[in-house]
């Protein structure tokens, strides 16, 4: 069983939902990322989504774009992100790590080399925001062969035919985008999510995580009641941005602890 599968199984036995925090690798500094990952696990992160910085993050809002820019200023490249995961795995062999980003840095490295390195360093899943299923068959074949789970997004506007297509290719979990917009937008519609998840479950047997627009304990709890996992990105990245460098780990830990408590109450 994969680390992602094991994680969701264990949570299910305890009737709990997953908390999936997102940070951008190399933000605010390459040296702080691994410590930040351990701190996230310490306060209850079940899975970590680690953003791979990209120069043109089209699907992200300004908060995550600035995180990318900070990381790129330090020259953080995909191979550095993989090294960070290797270092993290030195002390944590159980928490799943999902790389989230855009296709071009992987294209530049080559999919086969990338998938091999992912398996070597202990990456569990890969979410390539701008590679929908239509364009993913060849690329994700490499991931499948190396036992890496391709994670797909589903949107409020995704047609049934495409949900079925995603169901065939996806492994690990699927990530339901809870609003129309970019990451970090504020217009979350809980009723719409509540109506949509049961429909997705007719096609998708994998756990369903929900993200985009979850900004505090209250929304995290409300969303957790509707699905299997809650992804929080921009709110955490904002905390990193607003903290003095020496306080980043402590401030993020405090925030994620609150989110975890809220998700556990769901």
């Amino acid at each position: 069983m994969s680390r992602i599968q094991t994680t969701f199984e264990k949570l299910k036995q305890r009737d709990r939902k997953a908390l999936i925090p997102f940070i951008t690798a190399g933000d605010p500094h390459p040296a702080s990322t691994v410590a930040l990952m351990h701190a996230l696990v310490e306060v209850g992160a079940d899975i970590i989504e680690l953003g791979v910085p990209f120069s043109d993050p089209m699907a992200d809002g300004p908060t995550i774009q600035r995180a990318s820019e900070r990381a790129l200023k330090h020259g953080v490249a995909l191979h550095d992100v993989l090294d960070m995961v290797a270092q993290f795995r030195g002390q944590d062999s159980s928490t799943p790590v999902v790389l989230m980003g855009y296709g071009n840095p992987i294209e530049a490295m080559g999919w086969e080399h990338f998938a091999t390195r992912c398996a070597q360093v202990g990456v569990d899943g890969v979410l390539t925001v701008d590679f929908p299923p239509e364009e993913s068959h060849e690329a994700f074949g490499h991931l499948h062969r190396h036992g890496i789970d391709p994670i797909f997004l589903l949107a409020p506007t995704t047609s049934d035919a495409r949900i079925a297509q995603v169901a065939k290719l996806a492994r690990g979990y699927v990530y339901y985008v809870s609003l129309k917009g970019v990451t970090g937008a504020g217009n979350l519609d809980l009723t719409a999510i509540a109506g949509r998840i049961p429909h997705l479950r007719q096609h998708i047997s994998l756990p369903i995580g929900v993200g985009f627009g979850i900004r505090d304990a209250a929304t995290a709890r409300a969303v957790a009641q509707l699905c299997d996992g809650v992804v929080v990105g921009s709110r955490i990245v904002q905390e990193i941005e607003n903290s003095k460098e020496q306080n980043v780990v402590a401030n993020v830990a405090k925030l994620v602890k609150e989110l975890k408590a809220a998700v556990d109450q769901a």
Partner: peptide, 14 residues
């Protein structure tokens, strides 16, 4: 060419 966009745009492109 192709369609390399986030899922959030696929509906609009269809």
């Amino acid at each position: 060419g192709g369609i390399y966009v986030a899922e959030t745009l696929m509906g609009a492109l269809e």
